[in-house]
């Protein structure tokens, strides 16, 4: 139930994000979800793509610093209170969220949110027990 996320170090200067997306596009890699955390000097681009190993390799070949992190993708109903319900579960089972971001694609009724949490194995276990729907890696990559 863990999903591979790629993190890319980006300096805050124009054209860097464009270069990343071009490298991925040229290599026929599809971006499923992304978010950017930034400070005044640098940013961290977090990506979920359909072929993480390949994407990581291509980016490294283009001199980017890339790391791989396990995250979880939670499916929830796309209506008011959908996210709040999931966050309530996380709070109850006392799992801290390092960061989270929403998925690009979604179905008519459901939304998908990516969570990076402390102690991911425990989180997966407890969330599933609480009846929260987690997406497996394959379904996320081809969502």
């Amino acid at each position: 139930m863990k999903v591979k996320q790629l993190s890319v170090f980006l300096e805050n200067k124009s054209g860097r994000l464009a270069t990343v997306t071009k490298v991925l596009g040229d290599n026929l890699i599809n971006i499923r979800a992304l978010s950017i955390a930034d400070t005044t000097d640098f940013g961290i681009l977090r990506l979920i793509v359909d072929q993480p190993e390949k994407a990581s390799r291509f980016l490294k070949e283009n001199d980017f610093t890339v790391s791989e992190t396990d995250v979880i993708a939670v499916q929830m109903s796309d209506k008011p209170g959908g996210l709040a319900a999931v966050l309530k579960v996380l709070e109850d089972i006392q799992i801290n969220i390092e960061y989270m971001y929403a998925f690009v694609g979604r179905t008519d009724t459901d939304a998908v949110v990516v969570f990076r949490v402390e102690d991911i194995d425990r989180a997966v276990d407890l969330l599933q027990k609480a009846g929260v729907k987690l997406l497996c890696a394959e379904s996320v990559y081809s969502f």
């Binding site: 993190s7 170090f9 930034d38 400070t39 640098f42 961290i44 977090r46 790391s67 992190t69 390092e98």
Partner: peptide
Amino acid sequence: EVSERLFSDEVRKLE
């Protein structure tokens, strides 16, 4: 230069 060894996906750690 941020090498893979120094890099973290968390802003806090890089700061």
